Deep mutational scan, measured.
Amino acid sequence: MEQGTVKWFNAEKGSGFIERENGDDVFVHFSAIQGDGFKSLDEGQAVTFDVEEGQRGPQAANVQKA
């Protein structure tokens, strides 16, 4: 798993970007967020995640709040 920080997340659209510790920013969709309840992330929040190849390039998967 990688570690990173939420660069921004739009709760209305359900997507945003995570700033990786090593590498380019990666797209995140709300469906990749693990946990119960409303799936959203806050700017500056620390997260851990896997990276998968999506239709438009790398994207975060199995996102967990650190």
Score class of each variant (00 low, 15 high):
9 F>Q: 05
42 D>G: 10
59 Q>K: 08
65 K>C: 10
62 N>A: 02
41 L>S: 02
1 M>F: 11
4 G>W: 03
4 G>Q: 01
19 E>F: 11
55 Q>A: 14
16 G>V: 02
27 F>A: 05
1 M>S: 14
20 R>K: 06
23 G>K: 09
57 G>E: 02
62 N>L: 04
8 W>H: 06
52 E>I: 15
54 G>F: 05
16 G>E: 02
33 I>L: 07
52 E>W: 11
12 E>T: 13
34 Q>Y: 09
36 D>S: 12
32 A>P: 01
27 F>H: 05
55 Q>P: 15
22 N>Y: 11
54 G>P: 02
65 K>H: 11
31 S>E: 06
1 M>W: 11
29 H>S: 05
21 E>W: 11
34 Q>R: 10
34 Q>S: 10
51 V>E: 04
64 Q>W: 11
57 G>F: 07
9 F>L: 03
52 E>V: 15
4 G>E: 02
12 E>W: 12
39 K>H: 06
49 F>N: 01
5 T>R: 13
19 E>P: 00
65 K>P: 13
41 L>M: 05
46 A>G: 08
55 Q>V: 14
52 E>L: 13
37 G>A: 05
24 D>T: 14
21 E>Q: 12
43 E>V: 15
44 G>Y: 05
39 K>T: 07
57 G>W: 08
30 F>H: 07
24 D>E: 12
5 T>W: 15
19 E>G: 10
24 D>I: 12
23 G>S: 06
46 A>P: 10
24 D>W: 09
56 R>E: 08
24 D>G: 13
5 T>I: 14
45 Q>F: 05
3 Q>S: 13
38 F>A: 06
62 N>E: 03
66 A>N: 12
52 E>Q: 11
9 F>A: 03
2 E>N: 12
6 V>W: 00
37 G>P: 06
63 V>H: 01
22 N>T: 10
60 A>E: 02
13 K>S: 10
40 S>G: 07
33 I>W: 01
30 F>W: 15
10 N>S: 10
39 K>L: 11
10 N>L: 04
32 A>S: 09
55 Q>F: 13
20 R>W: 08
54 G>Y: 05
37 G>D: 06
54 G>V: 07
47 V>G: 00
29 H>Q: 02
2 E>R: 07
37 G>R: 00
23 G>Q: 08
64 Q>A: 09
23 G>F: 06
12 E>K: 14
39 K>E: 06
58 P>H: 07
17 F>L: 07
38 F>G: 07
32 A>R: 00
63 V>R: 00
23 G>L: 06
4 G>V: 01
38 F>K: 06
3 Q>H: 14
57 G>Q: 03
7 K>P: 03
42 D>A: 14
62 N>Q: 03
42 D>Q: 15
65 K>Y: 10
61 A>W: 03
55 Q>H: 13
50 D>N: 14
10 N>E: 06
11 A>R: 14
9 F>D: 03
57 G>D: 03
14 G>N: 02
58 P>D: 06
58 P>S: 07
54 G>E: 04
21 E>K: 12
17 F>H: 02
28 V>C: 07
18 I>E: 03
38 F>P: 09
38 F>D: 08
41 L>D: 01
36 D>K: 11
62 N>M: 05
28 V>W: 01
48 T>V: 10
62 N>K: 07
65 K>W: 09
5 T>Y: 14
38 F>C: 11
6 V>S: 02
33 I>P: 01
47 V>E: 03
1 M>A: 13
48 T>L: 12
19 E>S: 14
25 D>N: 09
58 P>E: 05
66 A>I: 15
38 F>N: 07
55 Q>N: 12
50 D>T: 15
24 D>H: 12
46 A>W: 14
52 E>R: 10
6 V>Y: 00
19 E>M: 15
7 K>N: 03
52 E>F: 14
3 Q>F: 15
44 G>T: 04
8 W>Y: 09
27 F>Y: 10
9 F>T: 03
50 D>H: 14
25 D>P: 08
22 N>Q: 11
8 W>F: 09
14 G>K: 00
39 K>D: 05
53 E>Q: 13
35 G>K: 02
3 Q>L: 12
40 S>I: 08
62 N>F: 06
42 D>F: 15
36 D>T: 13
6 V>E: 02
6 V>T: 04
8 W>G: 04
39 K>A: 06
56 R>D: 08
53 E>S: 10
47 V>Q: 00
47 V>C: 05
13 K>Y: 08
63 V>N: 00
56 R>N: 12
27 F>L: 04
28 V>A: 00
65 K>T: 11
17 F>A: 04
59 Q>H: 09
2 E>D: 08
11 A>V: 12
20 R>H: 05
37 G>H: 06
13 K>N: 09
33 I>G: 02
33 I>A: 03
28 V>M: 05
52 E>N: 08
35 G>F: 08
66 A>E: 11
51 V>H: 02
30 F>A: 07
46 A>H: 13
30 F>Y: 11
37 G>M: 06
60 A>L: 01
40 S>N: 07
34 Q>W: 10
22 N>W: 10
15 S>I: 15
26 V>M: 05
42 D>E: 14
2 E>K: 08
2 E>M: 13
51 V>Y: 05
4 G>F: 00
30 F>E: 04
64 Q>I: 12
22 N>F: 12
16 G>R: 00
37 G>S: 07
47 V>L: 02
28 V>Q: 00
27 F>P: 04
56 R>I: 07
40 S>C: 14
59 Q>M: 09
35 G>A: 09
27 F>S: 04
24 D>R: 14
22 N>C: 14
47 V>P: 01
59 Q>C: 09
39 K>V: 08
66 A>C: 14
36 D>E: 12
5 T>P: 00
20 R>D: 05
51 V>K: 03
66 A>M: 14
50 D>F: 14
48 T>N: 08
14 G>H: 00
58 P>R: 07
2 E>V: 11
44 G>R: 05
35 G>H: 08
17 F>Y: 08
56 R>H: 13
64 Q>H: 13
26 V>I: 13
21 E>L: 13
48 T>A: 06
22 N>P: 05
13 K>R: 10
3 Q>N: 12
25 D>Q: 11
33 I>F: 04
27 F>G: 01
14 G>C: 07
12 E>V: 12
9 F>N: 02
61 A>Y: 11
19 E>I: 14
58 P>C: 09
44 G>M: 03
66 A>Y: 12
45 Q>P: 03
63 V>F: 00
35 G>N: 07
63 V>L: 04
1 M>Q: 14
10 N>M: 02
47 V>D: 02
3 Q>W: 15
66 A>R: 09
44 G>H: 06
10 N>H: 07
23 G>Y: 05
48 T>E: 06
16 G>F: 02
35 G>S: 09
33 I>C: 06
30 F>M: 05
10 N>I: 05
14 G>A: 01
22 N>R: 10
38 F>M: 07
61 A>E: 07
43 E>W: 14
6 V>M: 01
3 Q>A: 12
7 K>D: 03
62 N>C: 08
20 R>E: 01
59 Q>A: 07
10 N>K: 04
43 E>P: 15
2 E>F: 15
44 G>Q: 03
